[in-house]
Simulated assay, not measured.
Amino acid sequence: MSTVGFAYGAQAATEFLDAHRLSARTPFQTCGWWRAWIREAAESEGATPVLVHTMRPDRPTLVVGLQLHQDGGTALLRPLSWPWADYHEVAEAGDTSHLGAEPDIGGVAKAIDRCQREFGARLELCNLIADGPLLRAVSELGAVLQPSDTVFRLDLTDPDVVRRVSERRGIQRKRRRIERLGKLRLTCADSPERVAARLPAFIDLHARQWRDRPDVVAPFDGDVVDRTYAAVAAEPSSAARLHELWLDETLLAGWFGFWRDRTYYTYRAAYDAGHARDSPGHLLTAAMVSALAAQGADTFDLTRGDYAYKRELPSSRALTMSASLERPCRV
């Protein structure tokens, strides 16, 4: 028999996260990511956090992160940290003795249904992992499902994939050309302290690249975006990483992402537009793929977004899913 509970509001949700260790299925369900986003971004997004948790003695405690919005006179439940997160899924909390057991799909469905009825809200979920527990749970509730976004991944256990990314002809030519100007080197800030030290330079690089461009998404503005990145990076459980490609002492490109379960998840990239003809972003990707494969990584996850540079890579494609469920009668 499942027991359902809610942690409603920023304070209650943060206290829940402070009291529980989560086993996250992606970087976007870690305590660190959720806690930082709640503290720095939720208010600006007009979101009230709701952590829905379902417990039963023979299964892991499952946690669904949601956020409540008011859209005119309509209440909406969306995934917690929408639209910032690239993936949405359940997390597991507390006792790890049951990890690996079949998730309590029925309990998650019951919990979401109760939450939806409590708030009289329409459910609008996106970027759910295909065949994951959250998608299976809302399917049991009769949610309308459809594709959400395409995600791209590189298999770093395949030497041919690694070779095709790091040694393809165009990359070799551009690497040789730029190395006439100096020495290329790859660095990685791999602790909260090191990421904090390098983050201002990355933000400045991104701001210079996108300055005055109308197609910029969530630009660094010296306010909520900057603070949220810094807060996420400061959380050890978020496992944030900042890779940088240098030409001598000149920063050419950077990638802010996450390392989890032998997978590197990309999140936001920036490069020096003054070196655009040499494709510093592609050079950074090639260097990272080689380095991560050598370190034993299994996957280079390019996350959501069907962009040309991802299609050029020898990547596999998969779809995330969205789910919607009309507002029920309030109890």
Rank of each mutant, 00 (worst) to 15 (best):
E118W: 11
F119E: 00
F119R: 02
F119W: 06
G120F: 12
A121F: 05
R122P: 08
L123P: 09
L123W: 03
C126N: 06
L128A: 04
L128R: 00
L128K: 01
A130T: 13
A130W: 14
A130P: 08
G132R: 02
P133Q: 07
L134K: 10
L134E: 08
L135Q: 14
L135I: 13
L135D: 08
L135K: 07
V138D: 01
V138G: 02
V138Y: 04
S139E: 14
L141H: 07
G142T: 08
V144A: 15
V144Q: 13
L145P: 00
S148Q: 12
S148L: 15
S148N: 13
S148F: 09
S148G: 14
D149P: 00
T150F: 11
T150H: 10
T150V: 14
V151S: 06
V151R: 03
F152P: 00
F152L: 09
L154D: 00
L154N: 00
L154C: 01
L154W: 02
D155H: 11
D155R: 13
D155V: 12
L156S: 01
L156F: 06
T157V: 10
D158I: 14
P159D: 07
V162A: 15
R163E: 01
R164M: 09
V165Q: 03
R168F: 05
R169P: 00
R169I: 06
R169Y: 11
R169K: 15
Q172L: 15
R175L: 10
R175F: 06
R176T: 09
R177G: 15
R180G: 13
R180E: 14
L181D: 06
L181I: 05
L181P: 00
L181Y: 11
K183N: 03
K183Q: 12
K183T: 11
K183A: 10
L184A: 13
L184T: 05
R185Y: 04
R185T: 11
R185P: 05
R185Q: 12
L186V: 08
A189G: 06
D190Q: 05
P192L: 05
P192T: 04
E193H: 10
E193L: 05
E193R: 15
A196E: 02
A196P: 02
A197T: 01
A197Q: 02
R198S: 02
L199K: 01
I203G: 03
L205I: 10
L205K: 06
H206Y: 14
R208C: 12
W210V: 06
R211F: 04
R211P: 04
D212E: 15
D212R: 13
R213K: 11
P214M: 07
P214V: 05
P214H: 03
P214G: 02
D215Q: 06
V216M: 06
V216K: 04
V217R: 12
V217E: 08
A218V: 09
P219A: 07
P219K: 10
F220T: 06
D221R: 09
D221V: 04
G222Y: 11
D223N: 13
D223L: 10
V224N: 08
D226I: 05
T228G: 07
T228Y: 07
T228Q: 08
T228F: 09
T228E: 01
Y229W: 14
A230K: 04
V232R: 00
A234D: 11
P236Q: 07
S237A: 13
S237I: 14
S237G: 11
S237F: 10
S238D: 07
S238P: 15
A239E: 10
A239F: 06
A240Q: 01
